[in-house]
Design a protein around this nucleic acid. Structure first.
Lengths: 327, 327
DNA sequence: TTGTAGGCGTTATCAG
DNA sequence: CTGATAACGCCTACAA
């Protein structure tokens, strides 16, 4: 069953051509006649010859391999935000025949991650913002000259970036609340989402003077707990924008458990549009970030950089308000 | 900013030792004094030297890199089953400092996937069952002698396997229904889950004579549609086991929309325990498969095989019934 | 268009 | 314990 692998020399010998010719048959560099190329490829298929990955990368000093670094997941939490970006990345990388590695940025695994960046095994990286480690890995890439693309809003990062248009998304939510006659808005979110807050305000228009901000973390439980706080301190609150969908689900669950009607009593809008959000009860009204598109775009950008282009682009991906049942 | 990378020769020269000594400082093979090893490592850290990945893999004929192959996701569907296994795999691979590649088994990308298996870039693969392509990739690995581990129930695969204990899980569900006094059970699932059906029957005991089987596919919409079918053809059905959690969510949504109370009128048990399932309304009673453990276990097994052990183990991961609000 | 030959950066082998 | 040197398998000037 096991085929013994032949190397280029043995394979070339078998065909009665030189190793150089075999090499040319697969690459795009050298000149070679169509007929011999076809012959060689056919024969290769037949006997199962393929160029050794390491040997060819060693001599040519380039790989097509890309590494994707993501912030560590919270244990047990449905952190599908990252997941969906990752699948977007992988879909595009696969189409381009670029092998994709994934690495979680645990503090304990930073040494390993840096190794990967520095040992020549990959030719480009994609990093999701969110952890201190993200910044560190970018710094490492930068210092070694490795092409990198950043997903999100990196402080101090001027280029190589694909971002969500958080400001516009939040604006859409605010406008929706205003246009549907809501009176007392609340924003639930984390620390570092100034753009969402500002965008929300601009969409709320005159309503923004009544805006209440709740620092609610980012998990389901955080959203759940927000409800009690808000019920206590913001009487009459009738619409809520949550910094992400999971947070919104938690908030809604608590609200329902306390006898509120959604959206009649309180309208709730989430952020992200996870695949699961359409199936929540009530189906979540949310800002769709097109996370798969983000992933695809970042590979596209990285691929150009890996081909030597110098880019300092910041690409913003469009978002849209998806109106379902919660607002 | 950019550091120029030194190779082992330049680095060794700088330290006044031979390349062989440098190499030994990082490996575990040769003898070397503790003091020189420490000196070399310290200096390496300082000047940023690391062994080139490709060169070292070329000569030593081994990588630590693992590839994970998963069936293609259905567009827009929350296929978090695969996701959660993948994170289990990555968590373990990362701890073992094994770079992990991920590859989706689209029919169009099979050529690429086979390439990855055959070109020497990886030293082992993990494959999730479910697609025809899964079987094909396993065959490729087998023919090339590459260590592989299979997750799930592969037809004809006698070893190298980590599986869920589907039979036992379904049995637990059946028993729960029986013990809670349900009378008319239904099973909603796909084609290829005989073990779940059989296990369910055994748990149901005498109730199994009344079991109705519904071929419900595997998506949320499938579950949703199942409800109408069952309401029509199985009057009095009061408990349902679904082949996965998403299916269960769809079924429940339809049931609620039709004025049924869950679990009073119909008790519903899912399968998998996705991270999100605890947050569904009603919180899903389900069979927890410990998908992260599956991932971890498969890396563990593969790692042993990559170290030369000949294994034909079939590992079954324990599952448990998680009782929440839906049954 | 094709062949020859040198070198990519390591690790393994074999002396010392 | 350490050093010299030969592979590993391929790509790419350069020569034919």
């Amino acid at each position: 069953m096991k085929q013994k692998k032949l190397n280029i020399r043995q394979f070339a010998l078998k065909l009665g051509v030189s190793t150089a010719t075999v090499s040319r048959a697969f690459g795009t560099k050298g000149r070679i006649s169509d007929s011999t190329r076809r012959m060689i490829k056919a024969k290769a298929e037949q006997v199962g010859y393929r160029a050794n990955y390491h040997a060819s990368n060693l001599i040519s000093r380039k790989t097509h391999t890309v590494a994707f670094f993501y912030p560590p997941l919270i244990k047990g939490e449905p952190d599908y935000f990252i997941t969906e970006i990752m699948f977007g990345v992988n879909s595009e990388s696969s189409q381009r025949k670029m092998p994709l590695q994934i690495h979680s940025l645990y503090p304990e695994s930073m040494a390993f991650c840096k190794d990967v960046v520095l040992n020549g095994s990959i030719s480009g990286i994609i990093v999701i913002e969110g952890a201190r480690e993200s910044t560190e890995i970018v710094k490492t890439a930068k210092s070694s000259g490795l092409p990198y693309v950043v997903i999100g809003n990196f402080p101090g990062e001027k280029g190589n970036t694909v971002t969500f248009d958080n400001a516009r998304g939040a604006m859409l939510a605010g406008r929706h609340f205003r246009e549907s006659g809501r009176k007392k808005p609340v924003y639930i979110g984390g620390l570092s989402d100034k753009k969402k807050k500002d965008g929300f305000r601009s969409g709320l228009g005159t309503l923004s003077s009544k805006l209440h901000l709740d620092r609610g973390g980012s998990t389901f439980l955080d959203g759940y707990n927000s409800f009690a706080r808000i019920a206590g301190s913001v009487p009459g609150a009738d619409c809520v924008l949550c910094a992400n969908d999971i947070l919104a689900m938690g908030f809604i669950k608590a609200a329902l458990a306390n006898g509120k009607e959604i959206p009649e009593d309180i309208a709730v809008i989430g952020f992200d549009d996870l695949r699961i959000s359409q199936y929540f009860s009530p189906a979540l009204t949310t800002i769709r970030l097109h996370m798969d598109a983000i992933g695809e775009k970042s590979v596209h950008l990285l691929s150009r950089m890996m081909n030597g282009e110098k880019l300092t682009a910041v690409e913003k991906i469009d978002c849209e308000l998806i109106v379902r049942d919660s607002a």
